[in-house]
């Protein structure tokens, strides 16, 4: 199975449940630069999708389109039955359902760890403060740093900050989590603590889209791996397919894998 058009495939054999994310022929340009070219992809509920590819291949831009941090110019993106367009309400509704973790953590430096986590549930979901704080404590325990609640982000290590960022995204109880190179800004020994949290999250049944260079994570956790290059999906399939030397790959994939593995 190489360089397959996923749309045609999935239309031929209807699934039991509707995919939670549907992208059809998504195109995007930065000025003259064509970043995304006819990207079509479906993600099922509880699926863990890992997107790999060289830098500049459009993989980050693609997942940023899914919660509309970037605007796509052509094609359709439908998340949880809502189409992403210019309607402000739709954008807000979708962002409530999607959590995002950034390469640079992007914690709010003027708020404590607990305030970082409780802010959105209180202001967007209108939870009582107590409930939000309880949730924050649960999540901090889940990511393994329950004792850091009252500290400020500047007082934490990179790995701890990224785990807080994951907790912050989870506090909104999202249906989907997007990870944009979550370990790229971390020291090697901190990468593991973040990946462990992500693995646990994947096992708990979260729908996840992960842009990463961590091939170990892809091999172990992913349900499906997508390889992107020059704004196109070049190849996709289960991890066994990607990391099996006996399978014949697209030449571009072959080159990338040989350099990274």
């Amino acid at each position: 199975m190489s360089a397959v058009d996923p749309i045609l495939e999935s239309q031929d054999q209807p699934k039991d449940d509707e995919p939670i994310i549907i992208c059809r022929d998504v195109n995007k340009w930065f000025g003259d630069f064509h970043v995304l070219r006819d990207v079509s992809l479906e993600v099922a509920l509880q699926e863990v999708l890992v997107i790999i590819g060289p830098s500049g291949s459009g993989k980050s831009t693609f997942i940023r389109c899914i919660n509309r941090l970037e605007e796509h110019q052509e094609g359709q993106i439908i998340v949880d039955g809502i189409e992403l367009g210019h309607d402000v309400r739709n954008i807000a509704a979708i962002r409530r359902e999607i959590g995002m973790v950034f390469q640079q953590f992007n914690l709010f430096p003027h708020l404590t760890v607990e305030e970082n986590i409780t802010l959105a549930p209180m202001k967007v979901r209108h939870w009582p403060k107590e409930r939000a704080q309880q949730k924050a404590q649960e999540l901090l325990e889940r990511v393994g740093i329950p004792e850091q609640a009252q500290k400020y982000p500047g007082q934490l290590s990179g790995g701890q900050q990224q785990r807080v960022a994951i907790a912050r995204a989870l506090a909104m109880e999202p249906k989907i989590m997007l990870f944009d190179e979550p370990t790229s800004a971390l020291d090697p020994e901190m990468i593991k603590e973040v990946l462990d949290v992500m693995k646990e999250l994947a096992l708990s049944g979260m729908t996840m889209l992960v842009v990463t260079h961590e091939m170990g994570f892809a091999r172990e956790v992913a349900d499906r791996v997508v390889f992107m290059d020059h704004g196109r999906i070049v190849e996709e399939g289960p991890p066994e397919h990607f990391f099996d030397d006996n399978v014949e790959h697209h030449p571009r994939t072959e080159l990338f894998l040989s350099q990274i593995l």
């Binding site: 941090l69 807000a92 962002r95 409530r96 992007n106 709010f108 967007v124």
Partner: peptide, 12 residues
Amino acid sequence: GQLEAARAVGLS
């Protein structure tokens, strides 16, 4: 990134 993070958690 602060703006993006705020948007991503759904703040208006």
